[in-house]
Design a protein around this nucleic acid. Structure first.
Length: 226
DNA sequence: GCGACAG
DNA sequence: ATCTTGTCGC
């Protein structure tokens, strides 16, 4: 499934409402042996964005394949419309990936979004692959403070509706916002994040792709140490 | 109108 | 998101 990206904000929101109705957030993940972690990186005023995907074996964190590239960035950052800025570059990166993977782990919200279609949901839907959303901060929803220990969690709510889980992945560090993206349910999403984290706040595959995508950007732009 | 607001 | 050293807290 594909669609155009050069839309007005109103058109983009209409498209989101249309796409959101196609999401599957009730099917448990059958497996997550091979995780395709995706991320982007860019400079404040640059017009190019670095996108990368790292396929990691969940049990060992061994890197199976990496793809990194630079891509033109045209859409601005508008809260709620993040995918229109970052997804085109990510989709290009995924198109160059050869390794079959079980699930995508995306930095950002899944259905924990005003229209229930954050970048993890949007990406999963367009690629027709299971996708988990794991964000560092909140976009929408309310919640209590989870307990202080790793594994402690509390529901992320929008009124009565559960749209995600605020999950502590490490003792006494800020919790993460986990929500299903597509072809995945909330329980599976939390399981995956918990199974791949512990040493750091972020899941290890997320840290790996974050480091790699920064390396890709710096190598393309040439950053000089002062 | 005011405050909130993934990356 | 990125630019950046030291520093406070467990």
């Amino acid at each position: 499934m594909r669609h155009r990206w050069d839309l007005t904000y109103a058109e983009a929101r209409d498209l989101q409402r249309e796409l959101a109705s196609k999401l599957d957030t009730t099917t448990p993940l059958s497996r997550f042996d091979l995780i395709a972690s995706a991320d982007v990186s860019f400079n404040r005023f640059d017009t190019e964005i670095a996108a990368a995907v790292v396929v990691v074996r969940a049990e060992t964190f061994e890197v199976v394949e990496r793809v990194g590239l630079m891509f033109p960035m045209t859409f601005p950052y508008i809260p709620g419309l993040l995918s229109f800025r970052e997804a085109p570059a990510l989709i290009e990166a995924f198109s160059r990936l050869k390794t079959p993977y079980d699930v995508i782990l995306m930095d950002g919200q899944g259905i924990a979004h005003p229209r229930r279609i954050g970048i993890a949901s949007h990406l999963g839907l367009l690629l027709d692959r299971p996708c988990v959303g794991c964000a560092k901060t909140r976009l929408t929803g309310t919640h209590d403070e989870p307990g202080p220990k790793r594994g402690d969690r509390v529901p992320l709510l929008d009124g009565e509706e559960v749209i995600g889980t605020v999950l502590r992945t490490k003792d006494r560090v800020k919790p993460l916002y986990v929500s299903p993206g597509h072809r995945c349910d909330l329980e599976s999403a939390v399981d995956l994040v918990l199974a791949t984290s512990g040493k750091y706040r972020l899941p290890t595959p997320s840290r790996m792709v974050h480091d790699y995508v920064n390396e890709v950007r710096r190598r393309a732009k040439g950053l000089r140490p002062p």
